[in-house]
Design a protein around this nucleic acid. Sequence first.
DNA 1: GACGTCAGGATACGATCGTATCCTGACGTC
DNA 2: GACGTCAGGATACGATCGTATCCTGACGTC
Lengths: 206, 206
Amino acid sequence: MPKVVDREARRRAVAGGLLRLAARDGLEAVSVRSVAVECGISPGAVQKLFPSKEDMILRALELTEERLASRYASLADDAGLDAHLRQALPLDEQRREEVIMIIAFSARAAGRPDWGKLLAEGYRTIQDATAELLRRAQRDGLLDADRDAADLAAGLVALSDGFAARLLHLPPDSAEAHGLLRALDASVRALLGITSAGTPPATPGG
Amino acid sequence: MPKVVDREARRRAVAGGLLRLAARDGLEAVSVRSVAVECGISPGAVQKLFPSKEDMILRALELTEERLASRYASLADDAGLDAHLRQALPLDEQRREEVIMIIAFSARAAGRPDWGKLLAEGYRTIQDATAELLRRAQRDGLLDADRDAADLAAGLVALSDGFAARLLHLPPDSAEAHGLLRALDASVRALLGITSAGTPPATPGG
DNA sequence: GACGTCAGGATACGATCGTATCCTGACGTC
DNA sequence: GACGTCAGGATACGATCGTATCCTGACGTC
């Protein structure tokens, strides 16, 4: 046997470099060569790891989904719904990059059924994690038990995704951005059926 | 004076061709040559119309915003809130193309402040139109007058945008897609504060 | 320690890219 | 009707693209 290496680990590292590059310069700046430069390896090495450029980008999408899922999984146990939903918002550089990548992948997934399937599964995972949080709140009496947790979770995820996409195009500390965050907060409370007269904790699980 | 033509009309036509091409094959398939082929003119003619490829794509973004704004403007007078919010959903081929283009432009706008500004203005326009609809409902007594129309409109727009992005990656007539549409409906009613016991018309303005 | 094997890199290929430049022909003025 | 002007097209350029292919050297077995 000749030199043995962990191909999968290398693939993951290259996918990570791709995400760094794409978040900085856009997915349109991704090429086999530019990714190789970003990772400090030769274009030939990148070629050996992925059968095609398309497969390389798909692997980066998978990595993004993995990261998102693990972030939600590690948060679900000890944080409230607010913190949960904020995972989808571009409030710091890391989450901003993730939002940009998901949007870029969404655009490319049009006409690529397998990419769309991956994205749909990612949404489903986040919705399920959110629904689980809501069901716990229902058991604890913090949320009306008559509400459909799955439907409500879908609404909450869509809400934060919609605000996330819009926040991307506003300066982070602008008045308009703060106004949107306030509107998101009010919308979440309205969706949950919390009246303005409610007492803290205003959102379940916090 | 030599041959005189309406440059602006030609630019608009080429931008329209670009949108057709990009909705079909993705924004990454757009090149000066491919757009020229799509429009049935020579690449040289495209070059004469736009100083650069970047400007050409920016013009296509502007055209998309124009189309969206006029769609919302023509609808606001005689349709209900449901029909209004459905403008953002990929429920037919035309709206599906528009959603894809907005998402593709959103991805490219990262790091391009002027593009982001155009997108932010587009969101603002749609939110304002929605808020106007809500204020009318408040005057008509169909909606609680205490609610902040602007915040509520921001929430409704984000909600439909979030569901729109997710619907893109599901087969139009799948069970999951129908489930999402049902969840959207329930979320809109919850946001508006309409209880399940409410009598029709369930949403204002319809 | 000779040798096979494959990782990593170098090189090469045709295709396509954005754009600069030149050509040409139709329209306008006078 | 001669002529200037610019729209539209053709051509050309260097750069970069994805990928196929070849080279080389380190590691493994025996």
